[in-house]
Design a protein around this nucleic acid. Structure first.
Lengths: 118, 118
DNA sequence: TTATCGCTTAAGTAATCACTTGACTGTTGG
DNA sequence: CCAACAGTCAAGTGATTACTTAAGCGATAA
């Protein structure tokens, strides 16, 4: 499967890269579900679904517990949030840069000669 | 490489699943860079870096143009934002559910009998 | 009790991934 | 001009991915 030692973000983004797994996450965001409930929308074997579920669990995005013969799955929103945070950090980094460029442009057009006056 | 026909989100999350590619995105959020500037922090062949760059480009996260012998790369923030939006949509879905549960709990403990009043 | 349900495990396969090396093509400073 | 530079292309390799089928196993409803 997926390297258990890999940094969390690797595993989270890898998990989200598959449409079936994203669909399962979407489903679980609306509430817990059993394995076969999760499998129901898909045109693949139960085994394949369970393997996707293992990827989701190993990324931490999903947790599950077995009661009787039924395994119930739930999302772990904090992990989804860690991915969100990484993206937001990139966006702010990029926006800061835009601001700097904007300021620089405004400065040089308002006062074409500013810092070097003796 | 990566399936060009795959839905954008697949390719975006797949691209972000690799630490080297995330590092390149981080670098590019602070400003444009040439291929060899991007390669400099890494202990891998230039060829490997270019291949990572191709994954990033095919996801739409990065654009590049060649001037003379230098290829200059920039991020495409809108694509990063599409990933952010997907995650935020999940979070709000999950939070709405929490709210419903909270309301239900408060309702049933405040007024054990509410909706059936004529 | 037993047949069915709800998974679980194992093994196999074709495709994709993340690299590598090496040979090559334009570009440009001296 | 021409050597070093910046990047490109092709092919090969071993690991991982996304499945499949098939067999098994512990609950549980009739």
């Amino acid at each position: 499967m997926l390297d258990q030692q890999a940094p969390p973000l690797d595993r989270v983004f890898q998990a989200l890269a598959d449409p079936a797994r994203r669909a399962m996450v979407e489903r679980l965001c609306r509430g817990p579900a059993s394995v076969s409930e999760l499998a129901q929308p898909f045109d693949m074997s139960l085994s394949a679904v369970v393997q996707h579920l293992q990827v989701l669990e190993s990324s931490g995005l999903v947790r599950s517990q077995k009661t009787g013969r039924v395994r119930t799955c739930t999302i772990e929103p904090t992990v989804l949030r860690s991915a969100e945070h990484w993206i937001i950090a990139r966006r702010t980094s990029w926006e800061r840069r835009l601001d700097r460029l904007g300021n620089l442009l405004a400065e040089t057009s308002d006062q074409p000669d500013h810092g070097s006056t003796p």
